[in-house]
Amino acid sequence: MTHMATGTLTQERSALSVTAAAQVIGVSPHTLRYYEQQGLVRPARNASGHREYGEADLRRLVFLTRMRLSGMTMRDLTRYIALVEEGASTVPDRRQIMHAQRDRLTRRIRELTLALETTEYKLRVYDGHPEG
């Protein structure tokens, strides 16, 4: 079992097929194959040539899907993963990417909060209670 809401994958398991991994992560197998084509994840292959996603692959996929959900571009993700694979010397560059992403998310949350407040105001007006 996974615990996606808490941000962790907690159960030890053997490698998963592309279909099983997609199901665990909550995306389509096509998405996983796309991430692989883009060089963002590199699952092992078994003797038959089928993909086998291990724990590290699943953690990477959780990160990728959350960053995409948050609006990070494929260009930024590709750059970030390339830096990760270059090693520890790239931590300052990775931090810079994450700071920029946090700034975008903070701005977007602020915008969505204002939109929600406006929506709630309109609902109060329609219910005959514009002040309460």
Rank of each mutant, 00 (worst) to 15 (best):
G54N: 15
Q11C: 14
G39E: 10
R45Q: 09
T8Y: 12
G132H: 11
M74P: 04
L16K: 09
P43E: 02
A20P: 04
E131S: 10
L77N: 02
A22W: 01
A47C: 08
R33D: 01
T8I: 13
G128Y: 02
V84L: 14
I25F: 10
L77A: 05
D103Y: 00
D57G: 05
L114T: 03
A20Q: 14
P92M: 03
T19A: 14
L61T: 09
G39C: 10
R66P: 00
G39M: 10
R42P: 00
T118N: 11
E120F: 02
S89Y: 00
T78S: 12
Q37R: 15
R66M: 01
L116I: 08
V125M: 02
R79N: 14
Q11K: 14
G132V: 09
G26C: 01
K122D: 12
E52H: 13
P130M: 05
A15E: 14
R95F: 06
R110S: 15
A88L: 11
Q23K: 15
Q101A: 08
S48R: 13
V18G: 00
E131F: 11
E120L: 09
Q101T: 06
T65C: 14
R124N: 12
I81P: 05
G132R: 15
H99T: 14
P92W: 03
T2F: 04
D127P: 01
L16E: 13
V24P: 03
R94P: 07
T65S: 09
M4L: 15
R13E: 13
H129G: 00
M67G: 07
P130C: 03
A88P: 12
L32F: 05
R94E: 03
E36V: 01
F63N: 01
E86F: 02
A20N: 10
